[in-house]
Design a protein around this nucleic acid. Structure first.
Length: 774
DNA sequence: TGCACCGATGTTTTT
DNA sequence: CATCGGTGCA
């Protein structure tokens, strides 16, 4: 093992060095925004390893898988790749899912249990409500789901629920006396399906550790050093897991910032961090208060905001950085105007200070706000990437394929089965499925077993239906046999072909339909990449179940696209936690939007919104831009808006309020091409001028046409396909660089045959292929 | 049983 | 605006 370089410790300030050198016993690090807490965690782990602690006995729980990966690779730089690989590092959900794969059988779960996502849970709850004959307007499945989730996160099991008269009364008061019954049925059905939802991954881990002292002892002994990042956002269930695991050795290190607690809505309990010192004996407390990220203006402005909160640990975040520019505040008339303003400000700063697209981030409170930003960026030919929102794996066509794959791995998975039993249509309709569900309950079989035994159970199906049903089970069973020998990619490829997904999707020739086919291709490509990635890992097999677990717990942040793509980042503020950007735009600074209208009822909810604003502002390194509009589209209607109360809470000396200027009035109805021509000529055939070349350092991508499928409307004049010439070098978002071999067709049907390095020859419809000319 | 159309309904935030 | 579930017809 490599020695940790001396310079490594020397590069830390004193406040950072102390917790890094603290080896044994509990410690808490209260770390202000931008104070280098990730560094502290990273160095501490490296230091432990360098002083002889086995990597296998270190557990580090992070908030995202991306954070875990980044930390791991930094540690690898310090102590060597092979040792770093042995660290247990990941989100609570992924680490304990892995443990439950090994130990879940003790709780009656198969090792290949399915992980239900929110949508699966919603569907199951909706069908339970329907089966129970309850009024769906009173029992709204989303409300029911979040209530059940809250139960689970507080470790209120079904049994505990029925022992708690207060809870039952509360539900009776809100006219939902059947809540407990739904909860019970939901838990039973998940169990029968061999499925766990996100909350179960934590709840069942607690159950495992409680009921099986031997298992608890095993993992206590294994994880002698435990570290938890973003501790302020842990919920009760996570808290108990950490407590149980660290109980024996007490080598527990938690890092967090109460001012950045923004997940109360999903059960995060700020008291976990506030009370940490009471939970363990002789807790060492370290504070990191020096901010290295942002300018004085940003740090001080953020402090002035958070001071409006009553509940907080007192700390003074300060910085030695420059004062920097004032925060710029802009008022715009509509959300479209706001988008234009942001896009042109980005454009101007790129020109003025030679910035990359990836130096800019646009942050918003709700995903729906991304639309206006996208439109504006696209018009300005500024490449961007949206994080979050409807993630790739949530798309219908992708979920359909995944449902087949999930069913193959776990035939008890009821939600997957119901999803695909009649897709593509094979004559098994709702009535049949309903009967099967009833029968499966009656005979206490899984839905799949019920179908499999439909004949012998003497269900009243006619011969035709019985045949269709047995065809279906046969199909799945054949896949299961194939799955023994094939890896995840081969399996998905086989399923896609055998089931005829692409043919099915081809029936829909609309742009959306074609986009779906592209998505299916992307899924398969992604799976192949996954297999290649897994081959490098010692304990990975590349099996389908491995892939499915990866998918279930992957966040959108995890899906890194090619590293040399230079794009503006668009995301919700929640997703931006832990990230930093030189230039940050916080848009939609309006009452009822930010703070959200849903949060105005209680002080604690409002304070969480304020912390969210604090998080947003402290993402900025150099400059922050705030904007609000006078009216914006919500639910398709133009709604009047007024400025957010948070704007007034910023000490005015840090703000530069800009009145609408001539330069931002683009006359919305004007043909945008006029504008584009004067500032950003479409020079597809010329090489970029030297001046522009200096703007983006690695690849001058910003002038290249970025085409997004969902934006294409055939009637629009600017939708003319790229002017390609044979022999031209082009870049595709997925396939990388390729050479145009030939071009055929005209107008909307214009296609190009392109040979890609490593991906072979593809025939692409130019309307939809996201091509850029190199 | 399948498909096309209709209206109602909902938006914070996510592992 | 976009998705969902329900209805009515083939």
């Amino acid at each position: 093992m490599k020695e940790v370089p001396k310079t490594f410790l020397e590069s830390l300030n004193e406040a950072q060095r102390d917790p890094v050198l603290h080896k044994e016993g509990p410690l808490i690090v209260i770390a202000g925004a931008g104070s280098g807490k990730t560094r502290v965690l990273t160095y501490r782990i490296a230091n432990l390893m360098a002083s002889g602690v086995d990597a296998f006995s270190i557990l580090a729980l992070t908030f995202t898988n991306k954070a875990a990966r980044e930390m791991k690779s930094r540690i690898a730089e310090l102590v060597g790749e092979s040792e770093a690989k042995n660290l247990w590092m990941g989100t609570f959900h992924s680490v304990f899912a892995r443990i439950l794969r090994h130990e879940g059988e003790k709780l009656g779960f198969p090792s290949n249990f399915t992980i239900y996502d929110t949508q699966d849970s919603d569907r199951l709850i909706a069908s339970i409500i329907k089966e129970m004959g309850l009024d769906k307007d009173i029992y709204k499945y989303k409300q029911v789901r979040s209530r059940i989730s809250a139960f689970k996160n507080s470790l209120i099991t079904v049994k505990a629920y029925y022992n708690d008269t207060d809870l039952q009364e509360a539900d009776a008061m809100s006219k939902r006396p059947e809540m407990g019954a739904i909860y019970k049925e939901y838990v039973d059905r998940c169990f029968k399906a061999g499925a766990m939802d996100f909350d179960d991954l934590l709840l069942r881990t607690n159950e495992l550790l409680n009921r099986h002292p031997d298992v608890l002892a095993k993992y206590q002994d294994r994880f002698r050093y435990i570290m938890v990042d973003e501790y302020q956002d842990t919920n009760h269930s996570q808290y108990l897991i950490v407590r149980a695991l660290s109980d024996r050795y007490q080598n527990i290190c938690v890092v967090g910032d109460d001012a950045q607690s923004i997940y109360a809505f999903r059960g995060a309990n700020i008291n976990n961090i506030l009370n940490f010192q009471k939970d363990y004996d002789d807790v060492a407390l370290y504070r990191l208060e020096q901010n290295y990220r942002s300018t004085k203006t940003i740090v001080n402005a953020a402090n002035s905001i958070i001071n409006h909160n009553q509940t907080k640990i007192d700390k003074v975040v300060w910085t030695a950085n420059d004062v920097g520019s004032q925060i710029q505040l802009n008022m715009l008339s509509t959300d479209a105007e706001e988008g234009r303003h942001v896009a042109s400000t980005i454009f101007e700063h790129k020109m003025q200070s030679q910035r990359k697209n990836s130096d800019f981030a646009i942050l918003y409170r709700t995903n729906a706000q991304s639309r206006a930003m996208e439109d504006a960026l696209r018009k300005r030919d500024i490449p961007y990437r949206i994080y979050g929102g409807l993630s790739f794996y949530q798309r219908k066509e992708i979920k359909d394929i995944l449902a087949y794959l999930r069913l193959i791995v776990n035939p008890k998975d009821e939600e997957s089965l119901k999803r695909i039993i009649n897709y593509p249509a094979r004559g098994i309709g709702q009535t049949t499925v309903d009967k099967l569900v009833v029968a499966s309950k009656q005979f206490n079989l899984s839905l799949f077993e019920t179908i499999n035994k439909a004949r012998e159970l003497d269900l009243k199906f006619n011969a035709g239906t019985l045949l269709k049903l047995s065809d279906f089970t046969l199909l799945i069973q054949r896949f299961q046999i194939e799955n023994e020998a094939l890896n995840a990619f081969e399996m998905a490829d086989l399923v896609t072909k055998k089931v005829g997904f692409v043919q099915e999707l081809k029936k829909d020739a609309t742009p959306e339909g074609i986009a779906r086919i592209e998505n299916v291709e992307e899924l398969l490509n992604g799976m192949r990449d996954f297999i290649e990635g897994q081959e490098e890992l010692a304990d990975a097999t590349g099996s389908l179940s491995e892939f499915l677990e990866d998918v279930a717990l992957a966040t959108d942040l995890d899906k890194d696209d090619d590293p040399n793509s230079d794009r503006v980042a668009l995301m919700t503020i929640h997703l931006a936690k832990g990230l930093e950007f030189p230039f940050v735009f916080i848009v939609g600074m309006e009452e009822d939007l930010f703070p959200s209208a849903m949060s105005l009822n209680t002080r604690s909810e409002l304070e969480e919104e304020r912390r969210l604003f604090y998080v947003a502002l402290t993402r900025a390194e150099e400059r922050a831009f705030l904007s609000y509009t006078l009216s914006r589209y919500r639910w398709g209607k133009l709604i009047d808006a007024e400025p957010s109360r948070f704007i007034e809470e910023i000490d005015p000396k840090y703000i530069n309020s800009i009145k609408p200027k001539e330069s931002y009035q683009y006359k919305p109805l004007m043909d945008t091409s006029i504008f584009e021509n004067e500032s950003q000529p479409k020079r597809f055939f010329k090489k970029p001028s030297p001046k522009e070349k200096t703007i983006t350092t690695p690849t001058p991508t910003q002038l290249k046409k970025l085409r997004e499928i969902d934006q294409i409307k055939p009637s629009q004049s600017d939708q003319e396909p790229l002017k390609l010439i044979e022999g031209m070098e082009v870049e595709h978002a997925r396939f990388g660089t390729g050479i145009v071999q030939s071009i055929e067709g005209n107008g909307n049907d214009k296609k190009a045959v392109i040979a890609f390095k490593g991906f072979g020859v593809k025939n692409l419809l130019l309307r939809f292929a996201k091509l850029k000319i190199k």
